[in-house]
């Protein structure tokens, strides 16, 4: 038996909206630690890793580990039937082929119950090695979203070069219209951590990435006020959105090679 009660349906809506365009179906792995998910996009260039720790739910019950194969697009549509502040309760029996979703209004005067069919998903689980990154940049998530949008839509760029030095982080593109760059400097004051740009750097690093993936990752912006970019030469970029202290959505993106 699995049961997880989330105070706000809104969080699950935001998570699904953040990942459903990149991966359309995935296995939700349920264990006593919480709910996790890992999935690659169809071209095997990027990977999503989700963790919702059990302490983010009240209650959370998992008698034995379960793998729930879910069509994320369908689940996102179903979640739209919940109001943002509805209490979400997910339940599944062991060996069940359905996941039950219950939405309860805060005043407890409306109860919606849905049964979602599960599917068998044959997915590869990838081992992600622990990495010491050359540079970790934390910035407001809205700023990251804005930069990705502007460099994509404004210049028509396909690839973005991200160069991190002590001075700051520079995003450059060359596109159909011309070329451009946006540089963010480290902010002096850290009074408001969510509004700061903080660079933790062991050595300068420059990498090239497909901009359209970064724009897709930015759909997770509503999940967190800040985002971190972790970069090392010759390894995938990690874009992480933390959900308070109860979990994260991480996106991994393979770099491009300069010819």
């Amino acid at each position: 038996m699995f049961e997880a009660r989330l105070a706000q349906s809104n969080l699950m809506k935001k998570i699904l909206d953040a990942i459903k365009d990149l991966i359309t179906e995935a296995n939700l792995e349920i264990s006593s630690g919480g709910i996790s998910l890992q999935g690659m996009d169809s071209s095997h260039v990027s990977l999503v890793a989700l963790l919702m720790r059990s302490d983010g739910f009240s209650p959370f019950r998992c008698d034995r580990n379960l793998t729930l194969g879910v069509n994320l697009q369908a689940m996102a549509k179903l979640m739209k039937c919940a109001s943002n502040d509805d209490i979400l309760t997910m339940t599944a029996e062991d060996n069940s082929d359905t996941l039950n979703l219950q939405f309860e209004s805060p005043a407890q005067d409306k109860l919606s119950e849905f049964e979602m069919k599960l599917m068998d998903i044959d997915s590869e689980h990838l081992g992600i090695p622990e990495t010491e990154y050359d540079a970790v940049i934390r910035m407001p998530s809205s700023e990251f979203q804005r930069i990705c949008r502007d460099l994509g839509a404004g210049i028509g760029g396909e690839s973005v070069t991200i160069a991190c030095t002590k001075e700051g982080v520079k995003f450059s593109v060359t596109g159909s219209v011309g070329s451009g760059s946006i540089t963010l400097k480290q902010t002096g004051s850290v009074d408001k951590p969510a509004e700061s740009v903080v660079i933790n750097m062991a050595q300068p690093v420059t990498l090239i990435f497909a901009l359209r993936y970064l724009n897709s990752f930015a759909k997770a912006t509503p999940l967190s006020e800040s985002v971190s970019l972790s970069m090392s030469r010759e390894v995938p970029l990690v874009v992480e959105y933390k959900m308070n202290d109860t979990g994260y959505v991480r996106f991994y993106l393979a770099p491009k090679l300069e010819d």
Partner: peptide
């Protein structure tokens, strides 16, 4: 032009 790397060349299936 730059060439897109595949994620599977970095992470192994477990």
């Amino acid at each position: 032009k730059s060439q897109q790397r595949n994620l599977l060349s970095f992470f192994k299936a477990v």
